[in-house]
Design a protein around this nucleic acid. Structure first.
Length: 681
DNA sequence: TTGTTGGTATTTTTT
DNA sequence: ATACCAACAA
């Protein structure tokens, strides 16, 4: 990605993609083909040569990181004054902004909250509990319900529609749960992540006046990673660009790895149908990898069906052979990778940050982490539990959410007894019923004077005290221009800091937690002072937005010390490294077991493709003959993807695997393609 | 009725 | 390492 930024000249294809502005355009950008360069230069071109004002241009990305990088690179191309008003944001952020501006036309009230996946899970658990459906398999059911509800929202289906499409008794039950969930989340004056796309889309669909307004505002739209759009996102794109179709979508169907969360790679084909004048430009020259690495990547991905054929090439020379290391077990695998990293660095005089180790699941990092620590190799772990999944951050955030949105029962439930206030499940159960009967939020129910008639004296006074405390600080926050000191005082006064101190297992853990809280404070401060939009320079906007931001990521980027990168294959998309290791090339792991059982081997293959194409010079694949799974050592089978690599470019160490006799992937691919074409008719 | 303890299982990927 | 549950103490 960075290699291309230095290119002063675009190649003819890239040039064409940049200058084509007269109609809808789809750029099929292979891995490492300089798509970010095209998007950023196109933005500059639109502003400087086509007379489109910056505030009429919107670029959408999927991750905060991509948005940040894009902004940065546009900043290097054109002076700040000229890019003023330009929108570069994630789909979710864009949706949030639209909801904020069009609040009156939404089912939401001012200062609504955003619930993250964890909050939604708790809500569902609670609902199922009340529904008396908590059984032995309740955990499984929760997961199912979460996925299903998300799928429905991504397909823009409301609960009644979900109900009418239900076929099995289980579907009916899930649809009922969906309805209940929607009722509750609205009562909280809250939205979930999927609502940030679905609500704005529905609004634009139903209200022509608002649609016109936004179409006028978004005169040119650029969409990055288009292959990752789900139905709702694609609908949003269509509604924003209108019939004129002034947009550029950039994507690569071979890098579609998010179908599991609703992404529809078919949206690429749909684009050609919905916009008959769609122009398609392919970027096939790769500026990143050696031709050996590309040969391997191409050779794997040809086993997938393709709507658009493309063949990556580069002029970077043949390069080093692709190494495959067979290890005895997962510990051995970690040890070998660590030793190899050490040797390679010393022999070739590289830096730690030149290396990335990629794997299928976060759990695989644990063994490696232990090994790296033992060998004193510095590493940077991305992914895993994010900053906001940390309990202390979620707790403090819940205090803030409750102050801003008193109807946020989800926040209330999280902190009512953290730190301990002697308010347990039984009391909460009663409070919940009382609130429901009187149509109150849990917080206002806690303040209600009638409470003493229903509750024991102690419980009632505890609840009153808590409600008074929140009310008190709500007022203080309002009366004060400088919110952060007030927040700090509140968290101290409520005893949360003492609670963290007492509770922490080790002094180190205590320090991390307190540091995390400090980081949160300073992030709030800087977000308030440095907000892009003046309307967003208040604590309410900032708190809401914080849920969507991964601050740890930003922080980690800032201290870019010399460390080996450890991450999942998913997290590696969009990045590149001189030397890449991919661990665990075994059946059931890569491809993952669930994908083998389900029907999504193609997506696993794309994941493999994404992994391979991260490497510039060196690629090393490892597998273990035995691996711990479910507390037991189990024998493994080498991944089918190893069979799909070009034999002559490989260099094996350890035992070479035997040929697998699996189904002919080409035949599978043809069947799939036929199926897909029939579907699209 | 709440709070603590100690045991157990746990992981595919994320805005 | 964490998170959730069951069982017991106060």
């Amino acid at each position: 990605m960075s290699s291309n930024a230095k290119l002063s000249q675009l190649n003819p294809r890239q040039q064409e993609a940049m200058t084509y502005v007269s109609g809808p355009l789809l750029v099929l950008a292979g891995a490492g083909s300089g798509k970010t360069a095209v998007i950023t230069r196109k933005i500059a071109h639109l502003i400087q040569n086509c007379g489109v004002p910056a505030h009429r241009i919107t670029a959408m990305t999927f991750t905060n990181k991509a948005a940040r990088e894009m902004k940065e690179r546009v900043g290097k191309l054109i002076p700040r004054e000229e890019s003023k008003g330009l929108t570069v944001s994630t789909f979710h952020n864009f949706g949030l902004n639209l909801l904020r501006i069009e609040l009156k036309h939404t089912p939401l009230k001012n200062n609504f909250s955003i619930l993250d996946a964890d909050d939604c899970k708790r809500l569902l658990m609670d609902l199922m509990h009340k529904d008396n459906l908590a059984g032995a398999d309740s955990k499984e059911l929760i997961g199912k319900a979460m996925r299903r509800i998300s799928d429905w929202k991504n397909d823009l289906l409301l609960p009644p529609q979900a109900m009418s499409t239900a076929e099995t008794p289980e579907d009916v039950h899930l649809a009922q749960l969906y309805e209940l969930y929607e009722r509750n989340i609205r009562a909280y004056n809250a939205v979930d992540f999927d609502d940030l796309i679905a609500l704005p889309t529905r609004l634009l669909q139903e209200n022509a006046e608002i649609r016109d307004k936004w179409q006028n505002r978004v005169r040119y739209l650029l969409v990055d990673e288009y292959q990752d759009t789900n139905t709702a996102q694609y609908m949003l794109v269509k509604l924003l660009v209108g019939v004129m179709g002034r947009f550029t979508a950039v994507g690569d169907d071979d890098q579609s790895i998010y179908a599991w969360r609703g992404a529809k790679p078919e949206n690429m084909a749909l684009l050609a149908e919905d916009f008959p004048s769609l122009k398609v430009i392919k970027l096939e020259q790769n500026y990143r990898s050696t031709s050996r690495i590309l040969k391997a990547a191409n050779s794997v991905i040809t086993n997938n069906p393709h709507l658009f054929e493309k063949q990556l090439w580069s002029d970077k020379g043949h390069g080093e052979a692709i190494r495959i290391i067979t290890c005895r077990n997962d510990d051995d695998e970690a040890e070998r990778v660590a030793h190899d990293l050490m040797n390679h660095k010393l022999m070739n005089g590289k830096s730690w940050k030149d290396y990335a180790v990629l794997y299928r699941g976060n759990f695989q990092a644990r063994v490696l982490e232990a090994q790296l620590r033992q060998m004193q190799i510095p590493y940077k772990l991305s992914g895993g539990t994010s900053f906001f999944a940390r309990a202390e951050i979620k707790d403090v955030m819940s205090y803030l959410r409750l102050i801003i949105n008193p109807e946020d029962d989800s926040a209330f439930l999280r902190i009512i007894n953290t730190p301990k206030r002697a308010i347990g499940p039984a009391t909460l159960e009663k409070l919940g019923l009382f609130a429901q009967d009187n149509h109150l939020s849990l917080l206002s129910a806690s303040a209600d004077q009638r409470l003493s008639m229903v509750f024991a004296k102690k419980a009632a006074s505890q609840l009153h005290e808590f409600a008074g405390f929140i009310e008190d600080y709500t007022r203080r926050l309002h009366d004060n221009d400088d919110p952060v000191p007030v927040v700090r005082q509140m968290i101290n006064e409520t005893g949360y800091i003492d609670f963290v101190r007492e509770q922490a297992a080790t002094p180190a853990a205590e320090k991390t937690k307190l540091d995390n809280i400090e980081t949160l404070y300073s992030s709030i401060q800087s977000l308030i002072t440095r907000a892009d939009d003046v309307d967003e320079r208040n604590i309410e906007s900032v708190i809401r937005k914080l849920v969507l931001l991964d601050l740890l990521e930003q922080q980690q980027e800032e201290d870019d010390t010399d460390k080996v990168n450890l991450m999942t294959l998913h997290a590696a998309k969009g990045l590149e490294f001189p030397y890449v290791y991919i661990m665990g090339l075994e059946e059931e792991l890569l491809p993952h077991r669930n994908s083998i059982a389900g029907d999504s081997i193609e997506e696993e293959r794309r994941l493999m493709y994404v992994g391979i194409t991260r490497a510039r010079q060196g690629l090393t694949l490892t597998l273990a003959e035995q691996r711990k799974a479910g507390g037991q050592m189990r024998h493994t089978t080498p991944s089918r993807f190893l069979d799909e690599l070009p034999e002559e470019e490989l260099e094996w160490s350890g035992k070479k695997k035997q040929k697998l006799s699996n189904v002919d992937p080409k035949a599978q691919a043809a069947a799939y393609l036929a199926n897909l074409k029939a579907l699209m008719k």
